[in-house]
Design a binder for these strands. Sequence first.
DNA 1: TATTGTTATACTCTATAACTATA
DNA 2: TATAGTTATAGAGTATAACAATA
Lengths: 170, 170
Amino acid sequence: MSSGYDVGMTASAPTPRTGVAFLLAQLGAHAAGLFADRIAGLDLTPAQAGLLRMLAAAPGRSQRELAGDLGMPPSRFVPFADELEERGLIERRRNASDRRVYALHLTGKGEALLAELAQAGMAHEQQLCDALTDEERDRLLVLLRRMADQQGLRPDVHPGYRNLRPKPKP
Amino acid sequence: MSSGYDVGMTASAPTPRTGVAFLLAQLGAHAAGLFADRIAGLDLTPAQAGLLRMLAAAPGRSQRELAGDLGMPPSRFVPFADELEERGLIERRRNASDRRVYALHLTGKGEALLAELAQAGMAHEQQLCDALTDEERDRLLVLLRRMADQQGLRPDVHPGYRNLRPKPKP
DNA sequence: TATTGTTATACTCTATAACTATA
DNA sequence: TATAGTTATAGAGTATAACAATA
């Protein structure tokens, strides 16, 4: 096999499969994809789920703040929030003292969906950690938390929303 | 703080920050982003780097095969390969026995760039594992490999190419 | 007739930049 | 004048499907 070429240090590719970095990227994309598929059953995209969680954690923030945390421009946030509002999951409330801003809140229906989301999240976690014992999972958690911390990643809020869209149903 | 609502199990969001799944997605996206930034200095996108590595590991494959492994339709692969060919990094060779297919190969220049890519990959790995001792990194590697294996992820080939484009330079 | 590589087209998404209403 | 939200528009990127050459 292996026809032509071989200039000096060809060898078996750089450091791809071997390294932690590659495995993290691979597993991370895999995890995000599985999660997207799972919550598609709730008619939610990862970004929508992210907003619901953010509103539960800190209600009443402005659209611009939320858009910033989700990594999207305000202009894109508007139709994004529109859909969730039309579905009765979130609510825009005018601020009396500054009538330019909307304070965003979860509705009762939104809270209920968030509970379903929690269950989906737990099942997702189990599916992903199926190859690990409980003790191993704990040790993994410690290491990953330390890495995330040292890399300056915020404890909550957006992994790689941005480019995840729902899949068509063939 | 924390105005309105609180329907039963509101609490502090589902299982986001806590779980392995979320941390993997977060760290994975972070790692992919850092790597993209780094190799942008070599005028390469992650997908381009992926193709170079694939050609080093298994030269002479057809465009359709490669496109499939990269997760892109053949129609998209054509201009993708065109650019790399114009830059003199890869080479299309007609198959004499079946003149429909092109066998793709790295050029000498491509091999040289691959060596630079290897260095970038090693620096990337170090940057990401900065918070870990060597022993911890080894233990992490064992756990991640086992997870990836059990999840059916192929040992090499594409993490989350697809949606990673180069950034504009402001 | 089936398959490789290629081109063309139509569609989705996105960011940029105007616009309005409040301040 | 500056800022929150909104709308409009134009551009990039994509997949789908048609096409040509070869089998």
